[in-house]
Amino acid sequence: MILFSNVSKTYENGTKALDNISFFIERGEFVFIVGPSGAGKSTLIKLLMHEETATSGDVIINNVNVGALKQNQIPYLRRSMGVVFQDFRLLPKKTVYENVSFAMEIVGASKRAIRRQVPNVLSMVGLSSKAKMLPSQLSGGEQQRVALARALVNNPAFLIADEPTGNLNPKTAMEIMELLDDINKRGTTVIMATHAKDIVNAMKKRVIAIEDGVIARDEVRGVYGYED
């Protein structure tokens, strides 16, 4: 579970990105974080990943107060979550298979476990036939699937997606969303920051809307609600 309790974040240059935000995300939920550019979505994601720390308030993930973590404990926090970005962030010189197995090598998995798990997760995202290709040989949607496979290969409790469909055409974007929905149905908590109005409206999931650093809405079966 994830708990934000009176969280504020002010950057060093004085920009106030988040102002006294509180919400709770239950295990197994699917949550959209929506809002205009600069509203604080990215900051919220960064706080989850401990790329930034809150200026005040507490961020609690799985009963751990993230703000109190020491530098050498942060990697272990990140292993409890898979992350997907708008720009995929794959390693261009590694094959699809290697991009995924890499995430397991990093956490010290055995060779045997890697050989068991990587084909599984590649088949789940529908890329078994492209395992030996390089990212540059794949379409955008396929690259995002590789990123998803990498995010999921270590069976994280949370999947954090920052504009995962931002670089994809509508049809491919919907395919990725179906995949995310599948992943969510298997029990992984999904938190997705997005601009994609159609997707939010179609999925009918919980929506947390952020405007000017405060929560404007928090609806169980919400809609996007902005005209942009």
Binding site: M49, E51, Q71, N72, P75, Y76, L77, R78, R79, V83, R89, L90, L91, F102, A103, I106, V107, R150, N154
Partner: peptide
């Protein structure tokens, strides 16, 4: 640096 960044958010320790 991109590779290092990716390793960081996948949860690699600094020494790794």
């Amino acid at each position: 640096r991109k590779e290092i960044n990716i390793m960081k958010f996948v949860g690699a320790t600094d020494w790794f």
